[in-house]
Design a protein around this nucleic acid. Structure first.
Lengths: 291, 291
DNA sequence: CATAATAGCTGACTTTAGTCAGACATTATG
DNA sequence: CATAATGTCTGACTAAAGTCAGCTATTATG
């Protein structure tokens, strides 16, 4: 850690502190203290469990209780006992609460838009923000099973195709490749897994099954901003577990030597190289793993 | 502004809010409210003028005055009237104050170090942080005249040489180039300007004079994270003004076609292309501007 | 089933932050 | 040189945030 990197880190901290402070104070324009606004936002973002909100915002139980009462009096929320455990409570936004929540969302959106609009290269700025956000909160990346035709899954696949087109010497056209039909990557034949950081997809992997004992791993991709955190390994472990769940005995995959990090990952995870098993024009390496 | 970029921006905001909050609360471990700690840090960082600290931290004059009194009672600072204007006051850390300041610095440093140490690619993370910090706070980039042998100037020059080595097809070895002696870039012969963002250099330009009416512009460089903000133009305007100040009538410079953004900048700023005027092996374009 | 643990609520606080009017000394300006 | 403007300080306030002990209701556990 050089003195220089400390200074650069500090400059970053100062810049974002100022920005965060400005966003916070813009929340005050709606005639409600910041604490109450933060609770409305937490509930709107889907945190309904009172204890969960409390932990997220780092509030004392007494303070939390009072904030909930004041929001209830304002008619923005209702609370009720938790169905599974009557000691706990859940909070929900009323219609008026949802309106307030959207108003707060609009304030944030407007700030974000104006900031990005002022940037000479908004895309680079967003990529830098992704990297910072993922580095700061990388323990919070979850893996979920989704439909490969869903919007976030398609976004990952598009990014994957674009990266292949960039990195393969031959380019990449998905229409020339063995593109699995969606049903092959949905239960009971297969699965499609997404790595999700704070609601946004940052990686994917597909399990293409036929109903028989042999299946294929397809479309392993990690957002460049999320690389280096061991996410590919986690996704591979999860997809292998999903395969075992579907009673699949043998996994295969194909890849290209222009993706050395993928080759290294497969070799390290116990995959063994085998002969070509398809006539896809793009791959030049083929692997197998017996579960 | 796509919904996706809004979501990415939000994810960033959430991640840094949590980080900033954690840093703030770590400051509370030293038995002093955050407001007082921020004042100690502002003074330690070199902001001695009370009005300046007040503007920087956005504090009311009454509140500021009380914070200063409490720090004085604690024995961390002394205040005295400003030598030039007895209405103003300046604050200074005492020995005990300097110790407290270092303790706060250590807290920040430790957080920064642990965060960067956990990152798989700390250098990429720092570059991303630079880009975010500069994009958020780019109105606050100041241009200063410095000694070209000073540490921050040398850091810029090293970065400049490294970039040339990367971008020129021939590579770049400063020993083979016309490296101006430092005196030529210091008053009264010349000048060396640095663009400084929050204490860190992000760009430079040199004016190499001989005492006569013709001088050369050398070493124009902008940190990649600070490009696109019109900083090169600002530096060029500042260095031209410095040249006029030194009664210089004609400016020259040389550059290489591998740096198209530089060529475009010079052409747009009214420089005209002239014949080669030196035998430096690297440049292939030569410009002149009459002031 | 007695006891401990958990989740939230209430009352009675304290601390911190922030506001505002007015006082005072000093400096700038017509 | 009178007047305006500036920078700081003080007193008197409010709002917001946070703390803590003790309460109730519920659930988990030996």
């Amino acid at each position: 850690m050089t003195p220089d990197s400390t200074a650069r880190f500090r400059r970053f901290a100062r810049a974002v502190t100022a920005e965060v402070g400005a966003l916070d104070s813009s929340f005050l324009g709606r005639g409600r203290p910041l604490g109450a606004a933060r609770v409305v936002n937490a509930i709107g973002a889907g945190r309904t469990d009172v204890a969960e909100i409390r932990a997220y915002l780092g509030l004392d139980s007494g303070l939390m209780s009072r904030l909930l009462r004041s929001l209830e009096e304002e008619g923005l929320i209702t609370t009720e006992p938790h169905p599974d455990d009557a000691r706990r409570r859940v909070a929900r936004l009323t219609e008026a609460g949802r309106r307030e929540f959207s108003a707060y969302e609009e304030i944030s959106d407007a700030r974000a838009a104006s900031l990005l609009a002022r940037s000479p290269n908004a895309d680079a700025l967003l990529r830098a923000m992704d990297l910072v956000a993922l580095s700061l909160g990388r323990d919070r990346i979850a893996i979920e099973v989704v439909d490969p035709r869903s919007e976030p899954a398609r976004a990952c696949l598009e990014a994957y195709y674009a990266e292949l087109a960039r990195r393969l010497k031959t380019g990449f056209d998905v229409k020339l490749s063995c593109d699995p039909e969606a049903e092959a990557m949905i239960r009971p034949r297969g699965a499609f897994l997404l790595a999700i950081a704070d609601g946004l997809p940052v990686g994917c992997v597909g399990l293409k099954g036929s109903g028989g004992p042999v299946a294929e791993i397809k479309r392993l991709w990690i957002d460049p901003a999320a690389r280096g955190f061991g996410l590919a390994r986690r996704l591979m472990e999860a997809v292998e577990a999903a395969a075992r769940d579907l009673s699949i005995a043998v996994l295969r995959l194909d890849t290209n030597s222009a993706l050395p990090e993928a080759l290294a990952l497969y070799r390290k995870a116990g995959w063994v190289e085998i002969d070509r098993f398809n006539d896809d024009p793009y791959p030049d390496h083929f692997f197998e793993k017996v579960l």
